[in-house]
Write a protein that binds this DNA or RNA. Structure first.
Lengths: 192, 192
DNA sequence: TCTCCAATTCTAGCGTTGCTAGCGAACAGG
DNA sequence: CCTGTTCGCTAGCAACGCTAGAATTGGAGA
């Protein structure tokens, strides 16, 4: 039965091509913004025709969602690094918050995919991708020392909201970039 | 010289038509979301042809921006009502925050225009529309009792960030709607 | 009142978008 | 070597934002 290994190779190649599409979409978005990521340009970039994209993803939204999942994994990793490289609950909190903000500032297109662009990502359900949970877990761990036993989740969610609000309003020009650090410090001091 | 009054009438009619366009855009967006607000459908609704839109606004973005300015005026008015109908700093804060959240929940398309859709609105500059300042002033007034003299603005900005983050993550499905009230209460208790 | 000119609105169309139908080539299996 | 299926491509659709140029409207002067 040579057929089986052939089938396996095909699936492998197919998975590779899917990765190629997702990373190409991500690179294009980070270089020129999401409005520049069209099916034609993306197909051009991966050197396939448009319809190939639709054999992997249901549509453009699904491609954005795939990039977003990647983004959540990256964000979770960076927050984890920020947390484990510090001692002391207060410093850990400050470091993780700074990592979150830095991520949003340095990868605006990725952050957009995660929080603005895509609406069709399952979040607090059983089929939520692991990467999404991982990010939230980091926040929960870092606020644990400051929470009463019964509201750890709640505090993590409020922290997340505060960080997202700060980042989001600043990036949209609603808040002046000037006092960004002071705002962040104030938020953290009130939550801790 | 009858020409002058004719000119005046024409300008009046023109202004009326502009209002018609903006309110039609707003109604269409609130009824079916912004993706349904196309130049063709909008032109249809106001019973003019597409190019008329471009004699009033530079493009679709400018129309969204005009709706957003309306939205800021509404939001400011509702927050003002919430503040002045209450006695006591803590209650005032809670009431204004609740008004903000209610606004975002009941008029999602409007909130979208104000915070997600449009990027091209001047905010902390001299030519910032009055409606935009008014909303922020309400927040500033309501946090004044809880701020040290030198960081009143900062605290208002952090409150705004927290509220926007809460609303934005909840609406995008990132936070379960379940504990929304408890999250809001926690945020306020930490800021006050 | 009739004609003319300027302002204004409409028709028609351009280039691009996301997405899909259906043809043609490539390739595993007999 | 032939056959059947799988796969990617060419071509095209409807709808998008936006614009050029024709057509219509309506005030002004004879």
């Amino acid at each position: 039965m040579a057929g089986m290994s052939i089938h396996a190779r095909r699936e492998r190649e197919r998975a590779e091509r899917e990765r190629l599409i997702v990373t190409a979409a991500r690179e294009l978005a980070e270089a020129e913004g999401w409005e520049a990521v069209t099916t034609r340009r993306l197909a051009d970039r991966v050197e396939y025709s448009q319809p190939v994209l639709y054999s992997h993803f249901k549509g453009m939204d699904a491609i954005v969602a795939a990039v977003a999942v990647d983004g959540f994994a990256d964000l979770a990793a960076e927050m984890r690094a920020a947390r484990t490289s510090t001692r002391g609950p207060k410093r850990a909190l400050a470091n993780v918050a700074a990592a979150y903000v830095a991520f949003a500032e340095q990868r605006p297109a990725l952050y957009d995919a995660m929080f603005n662009q895509t609406v069709s990502l399952a979040f607090a359900t059983p089929e939520t991708p692991a990467a999404l949970r991982a990010g939230f877990d980091e926040l929960r761990q870092v606020v644990r020392p400051f929470a009463a036993d019964d509201n750890e989740d709640l505090l993590a969610e409020v922290l997340w909201s505060g960080l997202h609000g700060l980042v989001s309003l600043t990036r949209g020009g609603r808040l002046p970039r000037e006092n960004h650090d002071r705002r962040l410090a104030l938020l953290l001091s009130r939550l801790a």
